[in-house]
């Protein structure tokens, strides 16, 4: 019925474009690296700490923002007209640059921030130093707040967009057949949303794992995330530091890519099961 080459022809422009730009750019940067640089990076005593810290921050941010974002999207779907208005508002955090959000988080959550001032007026504290440390702290709360502010609305927006075209029909049918809202959510919306959530989770994780500005400006100096380590090596005048910085960037990319591969094969298993059940929407 259809020429087997059709999907290849459709994909060709994008593949060509990405290999010519992204492929060349990356290839050029890693061509000068040797095993020695990787060993130097891996042998640094701070490396494991950095790796664990970066992974944990990215994992927590991903988990919270995707669960929160999906919940918000469900609420918006349920609210119908109100959901559409909120959909407009969600664009605000999505367009706000991370650096600006960093400034705002400092302004609200620092020990002299808006919350601390409210606490003072309410009589909970009488000195800024008594307010809990939420930026530059060892638990990366400040960093996390920036990611959540940006990512919960992003996830909610993408989920809402991918659901609203189709879901009302399914949801209405479900409710007419006597399903409870909880059943509608878990049996109808969630399966429909699974591929979208898989993608947003991957994107949010990769972003939080590779971002440098936010942990650089709001993190504790005690431990550094891998991208911050890479940046500091990059501006170091030691002649070998540039290459080690690049080696860290390659490691960051490799970890993200590895996780994506594991992830997409998991996704394939999931979707295979679904297709054989014959419930493809």
């Amino acid at each position: 019925m259809k020429a087997a080459s059709k999907p290849y022809l459709l994909a060709a422009p994008l593949v060509l474009f990405l290999t010519l730009t992204f492929g060349l750019g990356l290839g050029y940067e890693i061509s000068g690296l040797t095993l020695r640089h990787f060993l130097a990076v891996l042998g640094n005593r701070d490396f494991v700490v950095s790796l664990v810290a970066t992974l944990s921050v990215a994992a927590v941010a991903t988990l919270v923002s995707n669960v929160g974002g999906a919940a918000l999207a469900f609420a918006m779907l349920k609210a119908r007209a109100g959901g559409e208005s909120v959909r407009h508002i969600l664009q605000l955090p999505v367009i706000m640059p991370h650096l600006v959000v960093t400034v705002i988080v400092f302004h609200i959550f620092a020990q002299t921030g808006v919350l601390a001032r409210l606490a003072w007026w309410l009589g909970f504290i009488d000195d800024p130093n008594q307010f809990p440390l939420l930026v530059f702290d060892h638990f990366a709360i400040g960093i996390m707040l920036v990611y959540l502010y940006k990512q919960i609305p992003f996830v909610a927006m993408v989920c809402f967009d991918s659901l609203r075209g189709i879901s009302h029909r399914f949801g209405d049918v479900g409710e007419n057949l006597g399903a409870t809202p909880w059943q509608v959510t878990t049996r109808i919306y969630l399966p429909l949303l699974k591929p979208t959530l898989m993608a947003t989770a991957l994107i949010t994780f990769a972003f939080a794992f590779g971002a440098f500005e936010v942990p650089f400006l709001l993190g504790t100096p005690l431990w550094r995330t891998l991208p911050v380590e890479a940046y500091l090596l990059h501006i170091n005048i030691d002649p070998d530091a540039q290459a080690r910085s690049m080696a860290i960037n390659v490691i960051i990319s490799a970890i993200s890519l590895g996780l994506a591969l594991v992830y997409s094969s998991a996704l394939r298993v999931v979707s295979h099961v679904r297709h054989s059940d014959g419930d493809r929407p």
Binding site: A110, Q111, T112, L133, F136, D137, F216, L222
Partner: peptide, 19 residues
């Protein structure tokens, strides 16, 4: 001294806001 401000900008803000 368990943590320090990330940069002089943060130090300035903490000073100007009275901390």
């Amino acid at each position: 001294g368990r943590t320090y401000p990330a940069d002089v900008t943060a130090l300035d803000r903490m000073f100007l806001e009275g901390q």
